[in-house]
């Protein structure tokens, strides 16, 4: 089959690879009908996230049709079913899965010895990501083996086009979870940094969860226009001060809830010297992340507020204002 294969920094090739096979009774194989490129694929493309190896198949936003199931799938899936594949592989049986903390499933990371050393404790296995999350082949391919397929799938009906369903694999649940973790109440102002796909979903999720005001922060007019269409108040950080505008919008008190949908590759601007320094340090490998948004969120967040971080960070961030974080109730 054809697949997009990572060979190194900025080197992704369309290779011919062997077809996946059922390896475990709980496996299923799907014929991929649609897959997306995620913002976090760009971090892998730039080789900012450790643990990629040449030969890894990319892709963790995938859907398709079941073409083969293992004996242990137990009737939960059958040939011909149409499914969206969540990017987190879950067993559905461990303590974390039973609590609903699927992204930290205790069973599915098949390289947990690596993750235990780097993260302290392993998180769930992920498709098309690094070997710290299991190194599972991803879905930017013609076929995909879905491990623990009896639990790792969302069945979807016929008649709805793929592009109206595919976001169930990652961006919608990621944005939704980011908003849910904020415990939004009807008086809240929720500030969301980054209006990419996850940011757009977080904006809409915060709206549906009843936020009084949602503020969307980005510099791209097309993204800001889409955020505005969903009812958000927008801040273009290239033309206005985020700190001053957030103060204005919250009677000087700051937003109660802050969501970072930017992560480790924050925009660099000469007027924000910390972003320039971060970029220089990241370039010479003295810092793995560019955490400008984290710093800004900690600074502007109302004391006693909540900070939620769905944006991807890979390792170590410098100069976080931990004094403000602690004193505000962190």
């Amino acid at each position: 089959m054809k697949a997009l294969v990572w060979h190194g920094k900025e080197d992704i090739r369309c290779d011919t690879v062997t077809d996946p096979e059922i390896q475990d009774p709980r496996d299923a194989i799907i014929k991929v009908t649609s897959c997306a490129i995620c913002g976090s694929d760009l971090h892998l493309f730039h080789n900012y996230i450790p643990g990629m190896m040449p030969g890894d198949i990319m892709g963790h936003e995938t859907m398709g049709e079941v073409v083969e199931v293992g004996a242990g799938v137990d009737g939960k899936l059958k040939k011909g079913d149409r499914i969206v594949v969540p990017f987190t592989i879950i067993c559905g049986e461990c303590e974390q899965c039973k609590r609903g903390n699927f992204s930290v499933c205790e069973t599915t990371n098949r390289k947990r010895h690596l993750a235990d050393k780097v993260f302290g404790h392993a998180t769930a296995g992920l498709f098309g990501y690094t070997h710290l999350t299991g190194g599972y082949p991803g879905g930017q391919a013609e076929y995909l083996r879905v491990p623990f397929a009896d639990a790792t799938h969302i069945k979807v009906p016929a008649g709805i086009p793929d592009e109206q369903l595919l976001f169930l694999s990652d961006i919608f649940p990621t944005g939704w979870q980011a908003a849910v973790q904020c415990d939004i109440v009807p008086t809240d102002t929720v500030a969301i940094w980054g209006c990419g796909p996850v940011g757009q979903m977080a904006i809409r999720s915060a709206m549906l969860l009843g936020a009084n005001q949602v503020v969307a922060i980005d510099c791209l007019p097309e993204r800001l226009s889409m955020a505005e269409a969903a009812g958000a108040t927008t801040i273009n950080f290239e033309t206005e001060s985020v700190l001053e505008r957030l103060k204005e919008l919250t009677d000087g008190k700051g937003p109660e809830k802050c969501i970072d949908c930017v992560g480790m590759e924050a925009h660099v601007m000469a007027s924000l010297p910390d972003t320039v320094l971060d970029r220089a340090k990241q370039m010479v490998m003295l810092e793995s992340d560019r955490p400008h948004v984290l710093r800004e969120m900690i600074y502007v967040c109302r004391p006693g507020g909540i900070i939620s971080v769905p944006g991807v960070y890979s390792g170590f961030s410098d100069m976080l204002p931990m004094g403000a974080f602690m004193n505000k109730g962190g």
Binding site: V5, E10, R13, D15, T16, V17, P20, E21, G55, R110
Partner: peptide
């Protein structure tokens, strides 16, 4: 022969033939 196939987990797809890369000559 593809060196990266040596480190594949058992049963995972291996490279049969490498295709075109996103890497441009100027990047090289």
């Amino acid at each position: 022969f593809h060196f990266s196939n040596i480190v594949r987990s058992k049963g995972d797809p291996t490279i049969v033939e490498s295709g075109p890369s996103l890497k441009r000559p100027q990047d090289q």
